[in-house]
């Protein structure tokens, strides 16, 4: 089965207890949060609501990229790299 890699940072890594994992692909981008919520109950409200999402080295928007009208929206493909990006704290 094909998989994609998802990386968790900061509050997302603490909540999931991991830095990274493989999830089954393909997965519609619009289903990502529900998939994570099923695995990590409560994560949507406590963590994901303040996070951005990247696919490869680009940010994606769950609404505009995830549910393009007229088709099923962006699909996360096997081999893709996705990351959950919480509010940053460099410096």
């Amino acid at each position: 089965m094909s998989t994609f890699q998802i990386h968790y940072f900061a509050s997302a890594s603490t909540y999931t207890g991991r830095n990274t994992e493989s999830l089954p692909a393909p997965l519609p981008l619009s289903s990502l949060f529900d998939t994570l919520e099923a695995k990590y109950p409560g994560i949507k409200e406590k963590v994901l609501s303040s996070c951005s999402i990247s696919l490869g080295d680009e940010y994606v928007d769950l609404v505009s990229d995830g549910e393009k009208s007229g088709n099923e929206g962006l699909l996360i493909q096997g081999g893709d790299e996705v990351a959950i990006i919480p509010p940053v704290s460099s410096g």
Binding site: F9, A10, I85, P86, V88, S89, S90, G91
Partner: peptide, 9 residues
């Protein structure tokens, strides 16, 4: 940088 760069403390 403090506002945007993907680094976490």
């Amino acid at each position: 940088v403090k506002e945007r760069v993907e680094v976490w403390k």
